[in-house]
Design a protein around this nucleic acid. Structure first.
Lengths: 141, 141
DNA sequence: CTGTGTGCAAACGGTTTGCAAGACT
DNA sequence: AGTCTTGCAAACCGTTTGCACACAG
């Protein structure tokens, strides 16, 4: 999504385009798995005085407009990302906390089977799945 | 797991058996998807003065001993349960909040594929997966 | 000019921790 | 008796909110 695109999307929905919102959208496309805090930390340099509450409020607005989405990773803060990116599942390492992404198609068979047997329609992009990453797995059990 | 079993398991690992711990273990086997708070709420009647910190500390100990496990459901508090074989995956409905369980084998193909392609070894029992349950799915999109 | 968005600081809910008193072994 | 566990209260972290000012439209 280009700068133009979200500007239009914001304005057409009665939302204002502010320097803070532009900065947050830039951070969202630049950072790999940003949390509200990491977005704030990454931006205080270029946008001095940017408050954490603005980050939270902006993320809420962008979510409402379906420009961004978020996933919960363990007990920690959620990670946000632009929706245009190919949908992916977050895998969170129980040992080192690393977050690995895999395309949703990886779970296609699983979601199909569950839907067939229980009627539950899984959307695997909204939550992280735990496990042990390749690096940590080679060290111990 | 019987009362005897966890008593032994606690003592054999150098942990003490206290009325509070017994009460918490009873609550874990009685309540469907208990959170630390709901365990505390359910026990204050029979164990007056039981503190929330004790619930948290006991759950941490029981987790360490692999007597209980927990799963994160959305941004809310985690739900705990006794480690049962067969292990379950928790599916959480985004509409009504219902928690549906499916055997971990449902995801066997998915976990195998991910391990093969990324080396990440998934343990799907540690996190809830979002979606829309059968009941809610029949009403709308 | 109007009303929305912002910064600040304080409130909030869930969780953790320091400490002294208490209880299990 | 000695050490682990508890209760209490305060600290803590991520998030939300109330308010007055700033600024996009």
């Amino acid at each position: 999504m280009t700068d133009e695109a979200w500007r239009d999307q914001l304005r057409s929905r009665g939302q204002r385009v502010t320097p803070q919102r532009e900065a947050i959208l830039r951070a969202l496309s630049a950072l790999p798995h940003p949390t509200p805090e990491s977005i704030h930390a990454a931006l205080v340099a270029e946008e001095p005085g940017l408050s954490l509450s603005t980050v939270y409020r902006t993320l809420a607005v962008l979510q409402e407009l379906e420009i961004v989405s978020h996933a919960h990773i363990g007990s920690g803060p959620p990670v946000y990302h632009l929706v245009e990116r190919p949908p992916h599942i977050h895998l969170s390492c129980l040992r080192c906390g690393a977050v690995v992404s895999v395309p949703v198609e990886s779970a296609a068979g699983f979601t199909r089977d569950v839907a067939a047997s229980t009627g539950f329609r899984i959307d695997a992009t909204h939550s992280a799945i735990y496990g042990v990453c390749a690096g940590c797995g080679t060290i111990g059990p």
